[in-house]
C-alpha cells in the first residue's frame, strides 16, 4: 500500500487552507474551498483501495475475486454532491456581494463596512 495518495490528500488540504487564509478575492477563496474538498475524495478512495482488485460492479462477477470497497465510493459521491451545492451557494453569495459592494476583496469589504 502506497502512502502517496495520503500525502496527496494532505497536500491538497494544506494548499487549499493556505489559499483561503491568504485570499484577496472571494471567488478565489471559494475555489480554494473546492480544492480542500478534493482532498477528502482522494483520501476516501485511498482508504478503500485494494491492490489488484477491480471495480465494485458485481454483475457477472466471479465469487471470491476481490473488489475495492464500494462504501467509500458511495461516500465520495455524496461528498461531491455536497461540494457542488456548497460551491454554487457560496458563489451566488459572492455575486450578490459584488453587486452590492462593488468589490470582492475581503479587506476592502471590511473597510467599507465601517
Amino acid at each position: 500500500m502506497s502512502y502517496l495518495p495520503y500525502a496527496l490528500a494532505g497536500w491538497l488540504f494544506m494548499i487549499g487552507l493556505y489559499g483561503i487564509v491568504t485570499s484577496r478575492h472571494l471567488v478565489h477563496l471559494v475555489v480554494c474551498l473546492s480544492v480542500m474538498q478534493s482532498s477528502t475524495y482522494v483520501f476516501f478512495l485511498a482508504v478503500g483501495y485494494r491492490e489488484g482488485a477491480s471495480a465494485p460492479i458485481f454483475k457477472d462477477y466471479p465469487l471470491g475475486k476481490p473488489a475495492v470497497d464500494p462504501v467509500v465510493q458511495a461516500l465520495t459521491l455524496t461528498d461531491i454532491v455536497v461540494s457542488v451545492t456548497v460551491t454554487a451557494l457560496l458563489l451566488a453569495l459572492v455575486i450578490e456581494i459584488w453587486k452590492r459592494a462593488g468589490t470582492v476583496d475581503p479587506d476592502e469589504l471590511r473597510q467599507k463596512q465601517r
Binding site: 488540504f13 472571494l26 480542500m36 482532498s39 477528502t40 483520501f43 461516500l75
Partner: peptide
Amino acid sequence: LNFGVTNTIAAFLIMFGIG
C-alpha cells in the same frame, strides 16, 4: 459567507475523521 466557509471546513474535518 463567513458562516459558509468556516462550517464547510468543519465538515471536511468531520469527513477526514469518518475516513
